[in-house]
Design a protein around this nucleic acid. Sequence first.
DNA 1: TAGTGGTCTAGACCACTTA
DNA 2: AAGTGGTCTAGACCACTAT
Lengths: 245, 245
Amino acid sequence: MNASTLGSDLRLPLYQRLRDEMLAKISSGEWRPGEPIPTEAELTKTYSLAIGTVRKAVDTLVADGLLTRSQGRGTYVRRPDFNSSFFRFFRQVNSSGEHQVPQSRIDSLGIEQAPQAVIDALELGATDAVIRMQRIRMANERTIFSEDIWLPASRFAKLLEVDPKDFGNLLYPFYEAQCGQLVASAKETLTVEPADLQTSAALDVESGTPVVVIERIALSYDSTPLEYRLSKGRADTFRYQIEIS
Amino acid sequence: MNASTLGSDLRLPLYQRLRDEMLAKISSGEWRPGEPIPTEAELTKTYSLAIGTVRKAVDTLVADGLLTRSQGRGTYVRRPDFNSSFFRFFRQVNSSGEHQVPQSRIDSLGIEQAPQAVIDALELGATDAVIRMQRIRMANERTIFSEDIWLPASRFAKLLEVDPKDFGNLLYPFYEAQCGQLVASAKETLTVEPADLQTSAALDVESGTPVVVIERIALSYDSTPLEYRLSKGRADTFRYQIEIS
DNA sequence: TAGTGGTCTAGACCACTTA
DNA sequence: AAGTGGTCTAGACCACTAT
């Protein structure tokens, strides 16, 4: 194998073609999260490239957060997490002042026709079925989120065979284990609106109280939409910070 | 001049020391926004470094948004703007559906003792004076923001000599022109709270209506706080989006 | 046509991790 | 001690911009 093996557009620079090649290995699962990729020396031999070119390709994937380097150990496929999600900016602290993963409870789970908003978000056909899940998330005995979750039935049918009590507190590792679907990134949109009757009941606030609405579309490595989620939480405990330049 | 000229910690790699050197030239104003910096060939000669090392130093500043490269033309100091500010995520569209810079009106301007929150934000001494400005921002004849702005009097005294009507719609270019203070970056924190009486009057909403509060600390190139700003706007027209991975 | 940044090579030596 | 990524060199040639 050598540089001519590198697919994609021949007009592209070598480091970008190598980058695409590595990205494909990650999204196909050939290189799995948490595991090391071949060493730089091996990559130079495999593709007959100079070390500088290989490093530049790796650099771009590190910059995009797909790989992490560790001097003396190797370069690893990063395990995606969602530390920068809006969720993290709700002040969910326990009595010791530490952040904590909220408890979850699935309240309903079933298959149905996808409403139009979900068809758009998940890029489905007009008649495709979806799995719908309603979930609440709690911390310190208090409900902090009420969630509506939609998944394409074609990829997630196996979830229907599992008792909702066994879903655990984190869904994405569960999706991976049960259905082989790996969430790599997400887009979130934040808005504020008054609580409707259902939401106010779920969050134990008065109807009309402002709630923060987080709309999330979770994507696979190859950018296929895997999950559409609408989460509503109290606005009074929300705090989000950015740096701009 | 050669590599030994590069200041800062000798244990640091050369490309980081060159980066620090260039950063200093930007923050001191020796290299000004919008102007080109020396070519890569000149930098290699000046500091007796290999081209790869110079490029790596430039790379980091480009990644941080301080420089922009333009093939065939040169490398330029970026003009800071605030397109990613929370402000941008209020749906301020005119009747043609375009975004627009809101109109501004200064309602009060004066010098006073800094309250404690401002002392903390601007890193002032306990007895330092500040300039306080109250401003509203409007679009389509409607008030969309009510703002409280504090500036260290030591740096911004000249503002008091200007008629508030002449401040214009954008403050940062005005700060630079009048006081030589250049805003390079900012930190913003977003929260939601019910409107107090003053805010509800300013925004023409009922008291208790949810408002989005944007707290901003604007910094110079060398990270000195230059401005502390509290902006309040209607929550129902706010929409913010992020991508996470 | 001259000058700029963009890509690429083929090494060298260093710092760190693991065994 | 062996193997990894981290830094650095000293060029070469290409693509693009300005004149």
